[in-house]
Write a protein that binds this DNA or RNA. Structure first.
Lengths: 252, 252
DNA sequence: TCTTTTTTGTGACGGATATCACATCCTGCC
DNA sequence: GGCAGGATGTGATATCCGTCACAAAAAAGA
């Protein structure tokens, strides 16, 4: 399954952070005490964590809110503490292209950060989320000061890019059925790690993720439902025939 | 021109390195004396350069040679001292997908380097080239030891990724005419920085770069030639109507 | 120089899919 | 509750473009 030759993201393992606190309103007092840090932060000392702490502030977004707008200057790095976010671009009035869904415990905009001083992608909340703003100069400073931290960020950026690029490339040589299969498997394997979930997207957004038209997406989903490959009601989906779905994904 | 919102690559400016020596056979004695270093190397001290020097060796490839094969373990970083290289993948026996053309003064395989221990892309020489092998552990060591070097590498990787991803994305929402126009402009603006050049590709490779069939590529090129947009003979091409070509690129 | 292989151009054809059009359904909102 | 706007499903249609087939040209060997 070439499509899912995904590299484990260390920040998505339990080795890297403790489980979420039950109280999501919980405002931590200091980065020192934060137990949902990014895995790269493991190499930071207490003074360095304090440095981040002094330049950060927390914030909350509601479902549908735009967190970063493409073209805006990058003055902050945003760390996603909880919730799902979509990363996307739209070239002037053209159709929207969704790059990926970002899960909690990731930085937003890292890939744009070192290119120039502008955000190249937009980010919107798919559900209510909490984030941490970190001053960009502090971030730069840390990377230059602590080589190991830079190395970890480099690993993170590289994997992210490789995964996205890989997905995109595979996609581009597939037809609609294969693409829709990919999308379902993407949600199942990468995002929710479950056979049954609610798609956090409209049909249009789903189509934008895999680069097909809304109508085609609908048609293929209906077909998958009729054929018993998935059980689909509105946005709720359950995979009933995983092997077949994987084969469709593979064969295009 | 969204397609060409490319970030200047510092290692491609004269500020960053001196012009090539006239004698391309010239074997330098030490990294210290190398005047075609990657721009990131500017932040390295003499001991650090010596560290690289002790683990490196130079080599030459002939046109058509494969430099790195996808799937091979990454034990070296390869620095391209002169010549052009194509970066590509082919999923088993499927059609080849060319990611980009790499110019001299770039590292090969950087983006794969931090993901895992395998090369994800293949590299083949488009002309006779010279390279420098650098031991990967030395490279890792340097990044961790010298934060500024890591930062520069991070910048380099980020820009490269952003450019490729951007190009790829724009492409995916264009039709054949727009794609061929993109390819011509890519060679003209990015690779050769000239209105007139020899395409270092077969028609098939050109098609693989922009994700269309060979026949379509041929047909579009012929059409461009007939319409006086370009002057084309075999692999030699001269752009005669740049504005129109840009418009075709933009409108898809 | 001759042979073999690779590269290139061109026509005909069919299929996949985007687009248009419209009917339902759902959701928030006054 | 009723209305407006968005989201969804479905059919009909047009078209872009990949595939096949073959000839010609160029390149590579021998």
């Amino acid at each position: 399954m070439d499509f899912f030759r995904i590299f484990a993201h260390r920040n998505h393992t339990l080795l890297c952070h403790l489980p979420m606190l039950p109280d999501s309103e919980h405002q931590i007092l200091s980065c020192r005490d934060c137990n949902i840090r990014h895995c790269a932060a493991a190499v930071l000392g207490v003074e360095e964590l304090d440095l981040i702490n002094n330049s950060r502030h927390e914030s909350v977004f509601r479902k549908g809110d735009i967190i970063i707008h493409e073209g805006s200057p990058t003055s902050y790095i945003i760390y996603l503490k909880s919730g799902l976010v979509k990363e996307y671009i739209k070239g002037n009035q053209e159709k929207e292209q969704i790059l990926q869904i970002v899960r909690k415990f990731s930085y937003l905009g890292l890939s744009s950060l070192f290119g120039d001083k502008v955000n190249h992608y937009s980010y919107a909340a798919l559900e209510d989320i909490t984030v941490c703003y970190i001053d960009i100069s502090t971030f730069h400073q840390l990377i230059k000061k602590n080589g190991s931290f830079g190395f970890e960020i480099l690993v993170s950026v590289s994997r992210d890019n490789l995964n996205n690029f890989n997905r995109f490339m595979k996609q581009s040589q597939k037809k609609t059925y294969g693409r829709v299969a990919d999308a379902i498997l993407y949600f199942s394997k990468i995002i929710y790690e479950s056979n049954e979930f609610d798609i956090p997207f409209t049909r249009q957004e789903l189509a934008d993720l895999i680069g097909i038209s809304r109508e085609s997406a609908t048609r293929v989903l209906t077909k998958f439902n009729e054929d018993g490959i998935v059980d689909l009601h509105e946005r709720h989906i359950r995979i009933d025939n995983l092997p077949l779905l994987q084969q469709i994904s593979k064969n295009g």
